[in-house]
């Protein structure tokens, strides 16, 4: 890949870094609330609630930028899946990450103007951005305005259920983030992808 490709338009970069920063806040304050304790407060509870609410709203606003951006600009095409082929492609990419990469085989899906993500990236981004982030946002707003939540589902408190959904999707997204950051180190150099996400050029 000699010549550079302009991969990340400005709005993607703005969205991405606000999103990432807010996520770090959310995870920090979220964990602090979930494991709150009188003796070892990570973040003071009321402060944690305030920060968490603020960051949650910021992520929501950002999410609209992401959805609208991908609806109306060319960036959206990178998130389209061809259902028929994907299983096979995923297998290839998985093989590459588990064996190929160590044998210095060439990547099965080199990036180009038309392919920004390899299949594994694509699928994980789609699940994160179009399943778990929305779930997270909806359940989060439910907890922010508990009066909108149905009070009982099969005898289990509605708030309780909403909270479980929120915690579980938060957990999945945290795991996603760790793996995501790690895989971003697989580039020309360990840091080149991070640089790209700042400059826009791959």
């Amino acid at each position: 890949m000699a010549e550079k490709i302009y991969f990340y338009p400005v709005w993607v970069r703005i969205w991405h870094w606000i999103n990432a920063l807010m996520f770090l806040f959310l995870i920090g304050t979220g964990l602090s609330m979930q494991y709150s304790s009188v003796d070892y407060p990570l973040v003071r509870f009321d402060l944690a609630v305030t920060i968490h609410n603020f960051a949650g709203i910021a992520v929501t606003v950002c999410y609209f930028i992401f959805v609208i951006g991908n609806l109306f600009t060319a960036n959206g095409k990178f998130y389209r899946l061809k259902i028929g082929e994907i299983a096979d492609q995923l297998k290839k990419q998985f093989y590459y990450y588990t064996f190929g990469i160590f044998k210095h085989e060439p990547a099965p899906f080199p990036l180009s103007e038309n392919r920004k993500f390899n299949p594994l990236q694509k699928v994980s981004y789609i699940f994160a951005m179009y399943a778990f982030v929305p779930l997270m946002i909806i359940s989060g707003f439910g907890l922010l305005f508990p009066e909108v939540i149905v009070s009982k589902v099969f005898g289990i408190g509605g708030i309780h259920l909403t909270d479980l959904i929120h915690i579980i999707s938060g957990f999945i997204l945290s795991v996603f983030m760790i793996i995501h950051i790690y895989f971003c180190t697989i580039g020309k150099t360990a840091l080149s992808n991070f640089k790209s996400m700042f400059t826009g050029w791959h």
């Binding site: 609330m33 709150s36 408190g157 309780h160 945290s174």
Partner: peptide, 26 residues
């Protein structure tokens, strides 16, 4: 739980264990 869900007071033991294990594996 049959009445309320209190953040921080109603953690689930199994979810706690599972999440720590998964984080560890990752």
């Amino acid at each position: 739980l049959s009445e309320s869900y209190i953040i921080g007071a109603n953690r689930n033991y199994y979810l706690n264990v599972i999440s720590i294990v998964i984080f560890g594996l990752v």
